[in-house]
Every structure is written in structure tokens, then in C-alpha cells.
Amino acid sequence: METNWIHDEILDGLSQLLCLSLDRTPAADMIAGTAMGWHRAITDERVWDQQLDTPRFRKAFTNLMKGRRMWPSPADFMEAMPPREQLALTKQPIKANPERAQRAAAELAEFLGGRQH
């Protein structure tokens, strides 16, 4: 299973939630099955990246543990998940290449000259 890491994160997070004894907590012997259901719900038609998303999964479970009194659903988990970190864009000037600019100008002139026929 390509998404074993997701199943492991879900099982770990649900096991931690289990310890909180929230309202409507499933029986301990149901956690493995619950994790399988969550895995299916969370991975259906979604693409996850282990490096980018593992911290997000962990933070989502932490958010659920901090703010829930009732056992959450996979939808609650998705709402608790923070957005992916975005790489910061920096303004870095790109040095001009005069030779490339001349070639592009010549190609453009040739193209425009060829269209006038």
C-alpha cells in the first residue's frame, strides 16, 4: 500500500484520541477498523505527499485533541488540517542575455517578415 504512512499517522492519531475518552469514542478494539475507514475517506480522490503532509496530519490530530469534546469524523479532521506550507517567492533579478535577446528579435523579425507575403 503506497499510503502506509497515512494509515500509520491515522492509527497513531486515533489512538491518541482514544486516550481522551471523548463522547462517542469507539471501542478500543474498533480503532483498527476505524483507521481503515478514515484512511479510505481521507485518501479518496486526493494526492498526499509524505514529506509535506505528515506534519499537517499530526497538527490536525493535535488540533482535534485540543478542541473536541466529541469523537471527530474524517471531515472534522480535514477541517482541522492546516494548509500546506508554501515556498516563499523572492524577487531575484534575472540577468539579461544580450545574445539570446538578439536571436529572439531576429526570429521575430523573420517571422513577421515572412507573414507579409
Rank of each mutant, 00 (worst) to 15 (best):
25 T>D: 01
27 A>Q: 02
29 D>A: 01
29 D>E: 06
30 M>F: 02
30 M>I: 00
31 I>C: 01
32 A>Y: 07
32 A>L: 04
32 A>W: 02
33 G>N: 10
33 G>H: 03
34 T>A: 08
34 T>K: 05
34 T>E: 05
35 A>K: 04
36 M>H: 05
36 M>A: 11
38 W>H: 03
38 W>A: 01
39 H>G: 00
39 H>P: 00
40 R>P: 00
40 R>K: 12
41 A>K: 02
41 A>C: 04
41 A>T: 03
43 T>V: 15
43 T>P: 04
44 D>Q: 08
44 D>R: 13
44 D>Y: 04
46 R>M: 10
46 R>K: 14
46 R>W: 05
47 V>H: 07
48 W>T: 14
49 D>H: 02
49 D>Q: 03
50 Q>A: 15
50 Q>S: 11
51 Q>N: 15
53 D>Q: 13
53 D>V: 14
53 D>H: 14
54 T>V: 15
54 T>W: 10
54 T>D: 09
55 P>H: 03
56 R>F: 04
56 R>L: 13
60 A>L: 05
60 A>G: 09
60 A>W: 10
60 A>R: 02
61 F>L: 09
61 F>N: 09
61 F>E: 08
61 F>Y: 11
61 F>S: 05
62 T>H: 06
62 T>E: 14
63 N>Y: 02
64 L>R: 05
64 L>K: 04
64 L>A: 07
65 M>Q: 14
66 K>D: 12
66 K>W: 06
66 K>H: 08
69 R>I: 08
70 M>S: 14
71 W>L: 09
72 P>L: 12
73 S>M: 06
73 S>K: 08
74 P>G: 05
76 D>T: 13
76 D>I: 07
77 F>I: 10
78 M>I: 11
79 E>S: 07
80 A>W: 11
80 A>C: 10
81 M>H: 07
81 M>C: 12
81 M>F: 04
82 P>L: 11
82 P>Q: 08
83 P>T: 09
83 P>D: 15
83 P>R: 12
85 E>T: 13
85 E>F: 10
86 Q>I: 03
87 L>T: 13
89 L>M: 12
89 L>W: 12
89 L>Q: 14
89 L>I: 08
90 T>F: 14
